[in-house]
Design a protein around this nucleic acid. Structure first.
Length: 889
RNA sequence: GGGCGGGUAGCUCAGGGGGAGAGCACUGCCUUCACACGGCAGGGGUCGGAGGUUCAAAUCCUCUCCCGCCUACCA
């Protein structure tokens, strides 16, 4: 034995690298598109090419890998489709920052050169995150890696755009959109982050023409008054209704503003009068459509006041605000200022304050698409887990608004639309047209806008599989089995994939969506670079190993709750890895010749301890299976942790040392066979969670072959479930624990053997203890173990510590060893605890209402408990009485 | 304004109508031939607050107070 020279502590680094290289080089992650049978597929939420692995990725991809590895081991033809997203604005910003360091702007380079530069950057450092995913152990089918801007996906994007356009589901028009003055592009509603910030509500007096009256309006953005074209009041408002139809005069500018009545105006907010600035406010834009109002744009795309801004023109928006307020004040138009929490919209990429601005944009008409996406979830074609998110999904789908898909940036899918400079015809086509379809002119100019990044992401489940071609891959793996994602992109991505999948594949993109929590810091804040509260997953993997990290994430991934990651938790699971490692270090030397000698099917041959561990093993297999298939990763992790550490290591291995050391005996061979089976099953069960250490250990088990990555995954063997063995082991473990407790509480030396006398409550129990006396003596450090026959007169030892296990009495004779006071206080402590419980149970059983109304099982349970507690009380009570009398004697 | 989730041991979190759980931290003993990243034995909680339903409530209902998130055209 001991041929293996395993290090005492598990050292992950080398083992992780070794196995990942092996798996990848042997193509063990490969999906077989031509194999029919049961399939399981997941498309990865493509990380941004700009990205480096953060906690969100780590969690997301660990969970996917668990599902993928689990199904692969269970014999499924498994596809995990990997890839990255071009991340339009984000990536463009990164490269622009690099240019800024060289003192250049993208305009200096020009569009073509700039895009070339982004591609260079992408080729050069865009793969970082892929390597980090490999480091995490992700078993993606890397040969199929895709990129949202590669040729195939670009083709899919154009195909979708053209078809939607042809069906009238894409249109172009002047609308007010969220505009980022820093990124110089429109943003979708979703790309705007809202926050409350300290601000003011300014009250401004607008004189009413031909009357001595004036209207006071309230606004948080006084600078926009330069673009006012109306004043609105609620038609029900008695204060103002007589003014409707008259004109107000815009201070400083002198423009006439029609006073309109519209129910949108809240009478109880501010002054009840609303200044209307159609070009710079979403609500006001709506009002202008309803009431046919003029629109005056007073700001340019950088947030500066334009030529319509009289003498304020050229000012920055905030500079203008200060100047206007000052001038209004000077000229007596300022009626008041109050402090107010203003809702600000910020660009989700650069955090600059978004400006509502009118511009020409492309929109997707989503209502018809949303309808089907809604139905698909309602009818269960796609199931959202946890279910609570379905409500959120419905809510959004029902109130969905058209999707602004054009972006005024350079990096992305350029919109496949051309305008004829001769006749003005707009041509939308899959391929670049050479001449105008209307006038045959050849002066065609392509649209400069690109598409929202999420447009291509929306096609991801089928574009990655070769669509619009009808490929084998699509036929085999679409719809995918599951999508794993965070709720932060439920609308951005999940909802849109649903719409596009149903539209273009006539089927849902995935049968299930598992929505996991967000990883937050210890204070519950979202981890982000700008907050400086990130825990770097790469650092964690370096320090604790990938397996420990993955197991932590799985253990914390309870449904419907955010994860607050703390390093101490990871450390705890690192220790678990070490525990597994050392269990293997112990076991492996015994397994050299164990295979084949004992069949695990012949239950009768096993010892009680073996029947017990095999039963517990199979129950755990069942629990883990249930947990994984219902996305309760934390339950699976906990069941495995508990079984491995507190059943297998703490009890089974400790006990197995006895037969194993009787080398050459049949008991030794059988114990080795069981040890081998349990260790092997445990590694296989754990493999989806912690692939590296389990592969290392499992492949060291003699005759196991080269890898467990393709399974099989353990399945429950019903014939090994053994409630009787579990019950009996509980008695024995209770007995051993009670001896240990006496030893510890009475400060007896840990190494000192204690004699133990047992009064069993039945002949069977006596045989049970005798049958396992080796284990009891070894694990309890027992010297002489005396089991009194059940049916004889039994006199407890004169001076002994007492314990009760079930109905069994346990005595540890302590004549001359210890002060009775120690035993008295130990018993008193124990008794007071039990008495409290006992009283509660008796009160319950004395309650007629309980007896008559409660379920019979519940009553019986309480009766059983009462009996058990009574036995304990009387046993311990007797011991106490005796000890007291001995003391006084 | 609307919606969702959460407030359980010092910390991080499970549980979700009938005996309050885990990990870490803590206390005591132990360097026993797999593991001190360990073993054994312990201590610790009126389950945010108030009502209600029930024989029985941490768990269900109502109200309430905090915390977080999503969403919204009260400027």
């Amino acid at each position: 034995m001991g041929g293996d020279q395993l290090p005492k502590a598990y050292e992950p680094a080398e083992i992780e690298a070794k196995w990942y290289n092996f798996w990848e080089s042997q193509k063990l992650f490969r999906a077989e598109e031509d194999r029919t049978g049961k399939e399981y597929s997941i498309v990865i939420p493509p990380p941004n090419v700009t990205g480096s692995l953060h906690m969100g990725h780590a969690l997301n991809n660990t969970l996917q890998d668990i599902l993928i590895r689990y199904h692969r081991m269970n014999g499924y033809n498994t596809l995990w489709m990997p890839g990255t997203d071009h991340a339009g604005i984000a990536t463009q910003n990164v490269v622009e920052k690099q240019l800024a360091l060289e003192g250049k702007t993208r305009e200096d380079l020009g569009r073509e050169q700039f895009i070339e530069r982004v591609w260079q950057w992408k080729e050069h450092s865009g793969g970082v995150i892929i390597n980090q995913l490999k480091r995490l152990g992700c078993s993606c089918d890397w040969d199929r890696e895709r990129f949202t801007m590669d040729q195939g996906l670009s083709r899919a994007v154009r195909e979708v755009f053209v078809r939607l356009y042809e069906e009238g589901l894409i249109y172009k028009g002047d609308y007010i959109v969220n505009w980022c003055p820093r990124c110089h592009t429109a943003l979708s509603d979703l790309e705007v982050e809202h926050e409350d910030s300290d601000g003011f509500l300014w009250h401004i007096r607008y004189p009413v023409e031909d009357s001595g009256e004036s209207l006071v309006v309230a606004t948080t953005r006084p600078e926009t008054m330069l673009g006012d074209t109306a004043v609105a009041v609620n038609p029900e408002d008695q204060r103002y209704r007589h003014l409707i139809g008259k004109n107000a005069i815009l201070p400083l500018v002198g423009r006439k503003l029609i006073i309109i009545g519209d129910p949108i105006v809240a009478m109880d907010f501010g002054t009840g009068a609303l200044k209307v600035t159609p070009s710079h406010d979403m609500t006001d834009f709506e009002l202008s459509r309803r009431h046919n109002l003029d629109r005056v744009t007073i700001m340019d795309t950088s947030g500066r006041i334009n030529d319509n801004g009289i003498h304020f023109s050229g000012m920055d928006r905030y500079e203008c605000r200060r100047a206007i307020v000052e001038e209004l004040d000077q000229k007596g138009f300022l009626a008041g200022i109050e402090k107010y929490k203003v809702g600000l919209g910020r660009c989700y990429r650069c955090k600059d304050v978004v400006e509502p601005l009118i511009s020409k944009q492309w929109f997707v008409k989503v209502e018809p698409l949303a309808k089907k996406a809604l139905e698909a979830v309602e009818t269960g074609k796609t199931r959202i887990v946890p279910e609570s998110w379905t409500k959120t999904y419905y809510e959004w789908m029902r109130n969905i608004r058209d999707w602004c898909v054009s972006r005024q940036i350079w990096w992305g899918h350029r919109i496949p639309a051309w305008t004829c400079e001769d006749c003005g015809e707009v041509i939308v086509a899959r391929e670049t047209p050479s001449q105008c379809t209307t006038c045959n002119g050849s002066r065609l100019v392509q649209e400069t806008d690109v598409l929202d990044t999420w447009f291509s992401s929306a096609l991801w489940p089928f574009s990655t599989m070769g669509w619009p071609d009808s490929t084998r891959l699509l036929q085999t793996f679409y719809p995918t089995s599951c999508l794993v994602t965070g709720f932060d992109i439920l609308f951005f991505w999940v909802a849109r994939m649903m719409m596009m999948g149903l539209k273009f594949r006539d089927d849902v993109p995935f049968r299930e969506v598992y929505i996991h929590a967000l990883v937050r810091d210890e204070e519950g804040k979202k981890m982000s670079k700008s907050l400086g509260n990130v825990i770097d997953p790469l650092m964690v993997m370096d320090k604790y190993g990938t397996d420990a990290f993955r197991f932590t994430l799985a253990a914390l991934a309870a449904q419907g709750r955010d994860i607050r990651l703390s390093e101490s938790r990871i450390e705890g699971y690192r220790n678990f890895m070490n525990k597994l490692w050392n269990a293997a270090r112990f076991a492996l030397p015994y397994l050299e010749n164990s295979q084949g000698k004992t069949s695990l099917d012949s239950q009768t041959a096993f010892s009680l301890e073996e029947r017990w561990i095999l039963s517990r093993l199979n129950r755990t297999i069942g629990e883990v299976h249930d947990a994984i298939t219902s996305y309760r990763f934390n339950d699976a992790a906990q069941a495995l942790y508990h079984f491995a550490w507190h059943e297998f290591c703490d009890w089974y291995i400790e006990q197995a040392k006895i037969p194993l050391n009787a080398s050459g005996s049949p008991e030794a061979a059988r114990a080795a066979a069981v040890l081998r089976h349990v260790l092997d099953s445990l590694m296989r069960m754990l493999h989806p969670f912690i692939p590296f250490i389990t592969e290392e250990i499992a492949t060291k088990i003699p005759s196991n072959g080269h890898t467990i990555i393709r399974g099989p995954y353990p399945v429950v063997n019903e014939s090994l479930l053994d409630s009787e063995a579990e019950r009996e082991m509980n008695v024995l473990m209770g007995l051993i624990s009670s001896v240990r407790n006496i030893r510890a509480e009475m400060n007896l030396a840990p190494g000192k053997p204690l004699d133990v006398v047992v009064f069993p409550s039945s002949p069977e129990e006596g045989e049970l203890v005798l049958g396992s006396c080796l284990m009891v003596r070894s694990l309890g450090k027992v010297g002489d173990l005396t089991v009194h026959p059940h049916d004889t007169d039994r006199e407890p030892p004169r001076m002994a510590a007492t314990a009760v296990v079930g109905d069994m009495r346990v005595f540890v004779p302590l004549e001359g060893v210890v002060d009775p006071d120690a035993e008295i206080s130990r018993l008193e402590k124990e008794l007071s605890k039990i008495e409290k419980e006992y009283d509660a149970v008796r009160r319950k059983l004395a309650n007629d209402a309980f007896l008559s109304k409660a379920k019979p099982e519940a009553v019986q349970k309480q009766r059983d408990r009462e009996a058990e507690l009574a036995a304990k009380l009387s046993g311990l009570g007797e011991g106490l009485t005796k000890m007291r009398s001995l003391k006084s004697a």
